[in-house]
Design a binder for these strands. Structure first.
Length: 468
RNA sequence: GUGGCUGUAGUGUAUUCCGGCAGCAUGUGGGACUGUGGAUCCUUUGGACCGGGUUCAAAUCCCGGCAGCCGCC
């Protein structure tokens, strides 16, 4: 993959990520296609929406069907018949969120503060917080067990478990209960087989409720994993086990702690493959980045990550998240594309793009669609106050003969709100499809407006139009 | 025609025997949801078939209607 910038407006930039399956104009939003399909929508829909790239999920594809079967279809592209770019998540986040975070209702940005995890993890995290290479040989002793008591309202009686060791994450599959071990090498192998255009390093996403000691321990472990991912990836590229041109993003962690975020950004940005493979495939990048003009057969600096993703806990508020971006982005060279994992409300997109983020993936538009919320363009009444959304089930829509946004032009907005509310209340399948189309129309349309505005040097005006 | 059983939120039920603040589920109305969760959570609303009697007090006991179900003629 390759990345080039074509216009800038402040720190915001318009660029293009080129992949084997086409280019992605940035800033871009990736709809999430967890199991290879965007829920409720078809590939024709995604093309009509002008989606440029989809985010699929290693965790689900690995556990539900298995990467071998996907590979036998010719990878994600052949399997799903989506012939534009794909990105895959590493599976690390889900190992925690599906077995951990969701039990407490804690997302990437904490808004509530339930009881923290039990003391066992804390004590061990503290005891192991100072190691480096020393523990790699006996990772078994470096076990962090995260045990979650069932919440007061939970019907499920058994606490969930996620065990983190130097080796990787061991957890119970939420689908069939079996024990699964995910490691950096395994995540890379799975993602190579799935064959997405852009893949992510395997990382540990800590909770916003984790203390600094544990966040630091997890971050440094994630850095060691990142090195393993980078090495495994270049080995696979060289041996042909990974698709040509497949790009690997490193992930910056460090929670909401400034020194940790800076440490992480420097580590990930500066990381270079150590596997010593000097092939033609590797030469170009190393020479270009470091301005080396060595002759054939010589390699000055081995390649690092193709892009940088910002992940993990983004703090306890929007301000915390913006601070994380302000600490991290200046340490990422302009030449690398920057992805912000899991973020994607209208406000977040504006704040992040203006700080130099290039790509987003987020379940928000499609998930809230299915639970009855429709996004509002400013011309249809969207404001930060209403979070640019309305609820389709509000009683006031019951008798409405008007569409949500008569200027929208999407399939959903050809129908009256009264009809849409009826579909939702009746749990008609058509509702999920129409609502998902509408919400993606709004978000992908916003990205298009943003690219256009940056090119014209009027991002601030556009932001004012939307945010007031 | 006759005997028995049953009538409790929009729906399904608990409490009835032995009278003492009518509970639960679902639905309705409002809210939450950020590397997926058609899930889930919070909150609000809403009820003793009708009429009479006994009692300090009736969903509960008694009488009469009405309705439904089952059996018999």
């Amino acid at each position: 993959m390759d990345f080039s910038i074509t216009a800038k407006d402040g720190s915001a930039r318009v660029g293009s990520i080129s992949t084997a399956h086409g280019d992605i104009q940035t800033p871009a939003f990736m709809p999430v296609a967890t199991a290879g399909a965007v829920k409720a929508l078809g590939m024709d829909d995604m093309e009509a929406l002008h989606a440029q790239i989809l985010m699929a999920n290693t965790f689900h594809l690995h556990l539900k069907i298995g990467e071998q079967l996907v590979g036998a279809h010719g990878g994600l592209h052949g399997f799903s018949s989506w012939h534009r770019p794909f990105m895959t998540d590493s599976g690390g986040f889900q190992a925690f969120s599906l077995g951990f975070g969701m039990e407490h209702g804690v997302g990437k940005i904490a808004s509530i503060f339930p009881d923290e995890v039990t003391g066992e993890r804390r004590e061990q995290g503290k005891a192991g917080g100072d190691e480096g290479e020393a523990h790699r040989a006996d990772g078994g002793d470096q076990t962090h067990t995260i045990v979650l008591p069932p919440g007061p309202q939970r019907k499920r009686p058994e606490p969930k478990l996620a065990r983190v060791t130097e080796e990787g994450v061991r957890f119970r599959s939420p689908f069939d209960g079996r024990w699964v071990l995910l490691t950096p090498e395994e995540s890379m192998r799975i993602q190579h087989t799935l064959g997405a255009d852009l893949i992510l390093a395997f990382d540990e996403c800590t909770s916003p409720l984790s203390d600094k000691d544990y966040t630091a321990t997890a971050m440094r472990r994630t850095h060691r994993w990142a090195q393993q991912c980078l090495d495994a990836h270049h080995q696979a590229l060289a041996s042909g086990l990974a698709p040509d041109g497949q790009g690997l993003y490193g992930i910056v962690q460090g929670g909401a702690y400034e020194d940790l975020r800076r440490e992480s950004a420097k580590a990930i940005v500066g990381m270079r493959t150590q596997n010593g493979i000097a092939t033609d495939a590797l030469k170009g990048k190393g020479m270009k980045e470091e301005g080396c003009s060595g002759g054939a057969g010589t390699m000055c600096v081995p390649p690092g990550f193709d892009g940088i993703a910002i992940g993990g806990s983004l703090g306890k508020s929007k301000q915390d998240m913006l601070a994380v971006l302000d600490w991290t982005i200046p340490l990422v060279p302009d030449e690398l594309p920057r992805h912000l994992l899991g973020i994607g409300t209208v406000e977040d997109i504006f704040w992040s793009v203006s700080r130099g983020i290039d790509t987003f993936d987020c379940v928000m538009p499609t998930r809230i669609a299915r639970s009855g919320h429709l996004l509002l363009h400013p011309r249809a009444g969207g404001t930060p106050r209403n979070k640019f959304r309305t609820s389709v089930k509000l009683a006031r829509w019951k008798a409405s003969t008007q569409p949500l946004d008569s200027h929208c032009g999407c399939q959903c907005c050809r129908h009256s709100m009264g009809f849409l509310r009826h579909l939702f209340m009746s749990k008609e399948l058509l509702y999920y499809r129409l609502a998902s189309i509408h919400n993606l129309t709004v978000i992908l349309g916003l990205m298009s407006e943003i690219r256009d505005a940056i090119s014209r040097g009027r991002l601030l005006e556009l932001k004012t139009e939307w945010m007031g």
